[in-house]
Structure formats: structure tokens, C-alpha cells
């Protein structure tokens, strides 16, 4: 008889477990869109990327990230619509000149990237090309755009997945840069 009662109790018990998950899932610290990176606090991977042909800015390599300056490495491509959305914020940041902004042009034909930058303006102090996506793999890039904050010693300190919006810029990225420059 008790076993029979337990069967009828099973649905509500299962629901209690599911409900527990729901409750935990709504926790204020949890952001389902955030992807963790194994690269956090590790040195940026070794790489040397050629400059973008036709652009008067130098290429990008690991050495450029170890100059004692905090830098922002932004992975972009001309075919990426969200990149267009975050572009004005990067231009704005570049004009303020507080932080070095480097671009990694990911899986993009150089001519297309060039046309894109000519249309929208170039916020990047250095641009590395990664037409094959090989460097992106070392960085653990899962999509475009993605942005990394690298400290003066060349360690990756933060990774932002997807386009940077005003909120992320002001509440996460700028405070972190401020802190790293200490």
C-alpha cells in the first residue's frame, strides 16, 4: 500500500527536482549566453598574423600584446552583422585613446575587410589577418564578434562573446581596463 502511494507521489517529486533547477537557473549571477573560456588568465597564444593588405596599419603578433600596455583584441569580419553593431563603440573607444585596440580579421577576404573598414572607419591600431581561422582556433574563438581584454603581460583577462553593447562596455570592459591599468 505504501509502495502504491509512493508511485502517486513520484510526479510531484520529479517536479520538485525540475523546479529546483529552474530556481537555481534564475539566479542573478547566471547568464545563459555567457560562454566560459579556458583561456582566462592564461598567456595569449603564440601567433604572428600578417597585416591587412592595403591598410596602413601593422600586423599583429604575441609580442605586441606584451608591451606593458593593456589592450583589447577584437575578432571581426566584414560578413558579420553584429560586428557592424558594435563598431561605433569601438570607434568611440579608439577616439578616446585610452587603450590599444587590435583587430583580428577572422575568415575574411582581405579586400572585403578593407572595403568594410573604409566604409565604417578603422578603430584598430594593429590588424592581424586570419583568413584560414587558424589563429582563431588557438584563441578559442567560437564566433564573431568576440573581444578579449589582454593585460600588459600578455595574459588574457576577459573574453566577451558576441557584440559589445553599451552596457557591457560601461559595466564590464571599461572598469576592467581601468583596474588593469591600476
Amino acid at each position: 500500500m505504501i509502495a502504491r502511494r509512493l508511485i502517486y507521489l513520484a510526479p510531484v517529486l520529479v517536479f520538485a527536482v525540475v523546479a529546483g533547477y529552474f530556481l537555481w537557473g534564475l539566479g542573478p549571477d547566471r547568464n545563459p549566453r555567457e560562454l566560459p573560456s579556458v583561456m582566462i588568465d592564461k598567456p595569449a597564444p603564440e601567433f604572428t598574423a600578417d597585416p591587412l593588405a592595403g591598410m596602413s596599419v601593422p600586423g599583429l603578433s604575441t609580442a605586441d600584446l606584451r608591451t606593458g600596455q593593456v589592450s583589447l583584441v577584437n575578432v571581426f569580419a566584414s560578413w558579420c552583422i553584429p560586428c557592424r553593431a558594435e563598431h561605433p563603440l569601438l570607434m568611440n573607444l579608439a577616439q578616446r585613446g585610452e587603450v590599444a585596440i587590435f583587430g583580428l580579421n577572422y575568415k575574411n577576404k582581405p579586400a572585403e575587410a578593407l572595403a568594410w573598414l573604409e566604409e565604417l572607419g578603422n578603430p584598430y591600431g594593429r590588424i592581424g589577418t586570419d583568413e584560414s581561422g587558424r589563429i582563431g582556433i588557438d584563441w578559442g574563438v567560437s564566433g564573431v564578434p568576440e573581444t578579449f581584454v589582454v593585460d600588459g603581460a600578455g595574459r588574457i583577462r576577459y573574453r566577451h562573446w558576441g557584440p559589445i553593447d553599451r552596457d557591457a562596455m560601461e559595466s564590464i570592459i571599461l572598469p576592467l581596463i581601468e583596474e588593469l591599468r591600476g
Binding site: Y8, V12, F15, A19, F22
Partner: peptide, 20 residues
């Protein structure tokens, strides 16, 4: 979530009590 808890949890408790 509170609404779901009350509706689903409540009805399943009622089920556990009354269905036998």
C-alpha cells in the same frame, strides 16, 4: 516561476493525495 510552482506543484500534490 512562482506561478508555475503553485499551479504544477499544487496540482501534482493534489494528485498524490487524491489519485489513489
Amino acid at each position: 516561476l512562482a506561478l508555475l510552482f503553485v499551479t504544477i506543484g499544487g496540482s501534482l500534490i493534489l494528485y498524490a493525495v487524491r489519485a489513489p
